[in-house]
Design a protein around this nucleic acid. Structure first.
Lengths: 132, 132
DNA sequence: TAACAAACGTTATATTATAACACTATGATA
DNA sequence: TATCATAGTGTTATAATATAACGTTTGTTA
């Protein structure tokens, strides 16, 4: 909550749009949507996105180059993201599964590498598309 | 093996370069590397990449827009990819961990969605960069 | 209020990826 | 062997995604 206050004008505008969207938004579609509010250049959007990602407010769906609001009340979960993506309708849902995140947070490979973050994307058919 | 035979000329050239590379290659760096072999346009590269991905010969590292040869003797593992990525030196390694892949293949969310594929990317510090 | 960090605005440009169209090879199969 | 489908090719143009570089403004804090 306190963190919300520290958002800048552009960051607020852009977070707002992403939170209200029902699907992941692309950077240039965000740009188009905020032009009436005075944000004119891609860089203004990308800068806000970068900050919001850092804060855990939003995530990037890497395979789609799109951005979604965090559904898990941000914080450290921003370093541990998992999505399910329907390849038919492109619906994207953030997975919030304690067991899964615990499993992945504790995962270590054989080399001894230190993992600070992960991003997992599942692709498949959502229940709606499965039926049709 | 039999599958290797079915690769087209361009597909072979591009697979060859990716297999010989020690790191993930970007599409346009591949393009640059194959221009002497007569491949002149981005689309020729992207088409070969798409086919090679379909065959499981290579994978795309989504967060880096880069392509690596599959280390797990391709096949169905192409639908189940996991990478470790060093955020300092950008070294990328394909993770081959039976337990992990079994766990993820069996993962089901609450909605009943069918997962056909997944891609997991861990980010952190490799053992070399950890020391310095 | 000086000094610094973070955010801003702007122009230009780099990077990644696909559309559209015409042509060519390959290998069934009738 | 004609012909049909499928996959691949080559090319031009363009779309979509993202960052560099510069100078200015704002907000915090010593």
């Amino acid at each position: 909550m306190a963190q919300t206050q520290t958002l800048s004008k552009n960051q607020k505008i852009i977070l707002d749009i992403i939170e209200k969207a029902k699907e992941p938004l692309k950077a240039y579609s965000i740009l188009f949507n905020v032009q009436k509010k005075g944000i004119k250049a891609p860089l203004q959007v990308y800068r806000a996105l970068a900050k919001l990602i850092k804060l855990g407010k939003i995530h990037k769906v890497e395979s789609r180059n799109a951005f979604v609001a965090c559904q898990n009340s941000n914080c450290e979960i921003s370093k541990a993201t998992a999505f399910s993506i329907c390849e038919t309708c492109e619906k994207v849902t953030e997975i919030s599964d304690q067991k899964l995140s615990k499993y992945l947070k504790n995962f270590h490979d054989k080399t001894g590498m230190i993992y600070k973050k992960y991003n997992l994307e599942f692709y498949g058919l959502c229940t709606t598309c499965k039926r049709s």
